[in-house]
Design a protein around this nucleic acid. Structure first.
Lengths: 339, 339
DNA sequence: CTGTTAGCGCGTTCAT
DNA sequence: ATGAACGCGCTAACAG
């Protein structure tokens, strides 16, 4: 009953022809009659033939697979990017191996070893928080395995393809939006300064203030791990020192919500007393009050774009095109109330 | 500088021994001297050797890969299960190919074809909404590819391994909780009755009512697609007909939140006037008011359990053990206020 | 303990 | 247009 295990040899034997002809027929080669093609296809169907891609891949020295490394699958932003990657890979006929580094460099290295052993045709990666040097990544390029960074890249890598978000610009727009709404004293919840995204978000914050003639005040910027409790504590501390705060620009939405809850409990009206904007990391925007304006990072688009760029690199033999694509997040305004 | 492309033959030649000895050494076979093992390992490192798993897999007729099919990666529950699957697979040394059916039967079929072509060692699946017949799944079993369902299974399949949630029991506990809080008129937001999960949640609702001496009223059960707007409309309609509703049991949290928002706008206090419990599908619990009690489906545990069961099946040659594991979701109470 | 031989299933030369 | 032969890289069987 081994219905699915037929090989090209079996269908060749059944037809009294050679396996190489069968191979050609199945690959739709022009060097085989239409007649035999049909016969082969019919017999293949009858025997329930399925090409053994492992053998095919070995012969062609190509795995038809791309490796993907993210810090954590269960984080919404990354599962969105993976959905986009999967979509692009699917239409291009590629398989995808998903791996999570769990933010550990060691695990990232062992994953790359594994991907290499599996002879993936290319790699998409969003590096772990521990990743600064990148010899383990250069190894891929040395062996002609295309590599595309998305979201988090490795600045130690001089030449590389990457798909990034324009954090600076998005932050600039978000803070400008607050200012246009009338805010003058805007605090910024920042994250670990080792990560470039947080540096860029801080930069956009500064530039927006300066361009609108508002002086930058170091006291109004606080860094944390951006959990909900951090948001609460940060705004509590800050309000204690500066009672006239009227805006919050948070590097993520979880901390923003922590702050928002606290403020509401204290009787502040959002956005009338204090307006809040946060980068969107979780799909919560729909679930919370309509007072939090968020910056949508559209992970799906990033994933799709990165995967397409990678496939382009895979197909352009020998030509290593190192390109940087920068996508613009969109500001989703939910604080329509005029202050 | 093809540093990573060395084969066992090259390292054999460099050492003046045979490639099969190298192979054995690399596989840590007991039938090779410690001395030569060390020499081989040293030379392998020197040449930057990486085993070609494609060739190895072809020879061993094993891919060391398991296929995973989910309706949508970006849905939080599924990305959680995938994280759990990935974790279990990683420690067992398996690769994972993630695929999304997008709730389409056709796509599910084509994915299965592809997975078969890739000769995966086993398959984990949560079927699409369109999947009722399952010939395409039986095909796997006919070819000795172990299959484990998780969360959504296929009732048309007489014999199968599956890891499920005890929806009935969780619903029973949730509704009992509401009753113990004093609710007497509890509505139920249900979903498409074609899906077993919604049938079971409805059953748990009924049983809890009966066991507590509350008559079941068909009017209080409404089915929808359980979007946020559905929640709003459903509660609006119901309140119009039954002004004394004091509890809501929702088959998902999004609809629950829709209802909650509407109720608050109408001046109702949660949970004092109306208590709400919802199955948790999105990671929003932290972000919303502390008045919504949720049922956590712990996708991570389901994924881990399912993957381990699959690997067990893969390893137990010839023995097809069809087991059903049922995990209990946990009720996370956030409505501590006494009514 | 090690070498020899023989394939896994497929695609790609050569021929004809 | 088709067949014969070879090899991708590795491992399993059998010798010795």
């Amino acid at each position: 009953m081994k219905k699915g295990n037929a090989t090209i040899h079996e269908i060749a034997k059944a037809l009294g022809i050679d396996s190489s002809t069968v191979s050609r027929a199945l690959n739709n080669s022009d060097r085989v009659t239409q007649k035999t093609k049909e016969k082969v296809l019919a017999k293949a169907k009858e025997l329930g033939y399925r090409r053994n891609l492992i053998a095919s891949n070995l012969r062609r020295n190509k795995s038809n697979t791309i490796g993907v490394i993210v810090p954590r699958i269960s984080r919404h932003f990354f599962s969105s990017t993976i959905a986009g990657i999967e979509e692009a890979a699917f239409v291009a006929g590629y398989n995808v191996i998903i791996c999570q580094s769990m933010e550990k460099l060691d695990r990232e290295k062992s994953i790359l070893n594994n991907l290499w052993s599996n002879r993936v045709d290319g790699v998409l990666i969003s590096v772990s928080m521990e990743t600064v040097a990148c010899d383990h990544l250069k190894f891929l390029k040395d062996n002609n395995v295309p590599l595309v960074f998305f979201d988090r890249h490795c600045s130690a890598m001089e030449q590389s393809s990457k798909v990034l978000i324009d954090d600076t610009r998005a932050s600039y727009e978000a803070v400008s939006h607050l200012i246009e709404k009338g805010c003058r004293k805007i605090v910024h919840f920042s994250g670990p300064q080792s990560l470039e995204i947080y540096k860029n978000r801080l930069r956009g914050y500064k530039e927006a203030l300066e361009d609108h003639g508002i002086g930058f005040n170091d006291d109004l910027v606080v860094s944390s791990t951006l959990m909900e409790v951090d948001g609460k504590e940060m705004i509590q501390d800050l309000l204690h020192k500066h009672s006239d705060i009227d805006g919050v620009f948070s590097a993520n939405d979880v901390a923003a919500i922590g702050a928002m809850k606290y403020l509401k409990k204290k009787g502040k009206r959002i956005p009338d007393d204090i307006a809040i904007v946060g980068f969107s990391n979780e799909p919560i925007s729909e679930a919370i009050e309509p007072s939090l304006t968020t910056i949508d990072q559209s992970g799906f688009e990033i994933g799709r774009t990165a995967c397409n760029l990678l496939i382009e690199n895979i197909n352009s033999k020998e030509k290593v095109l190192d390109r940087t694509l920068i996508l613009n997040p969109t500001l989703i305004k939910r604080d329509s109330t005029n202050r």
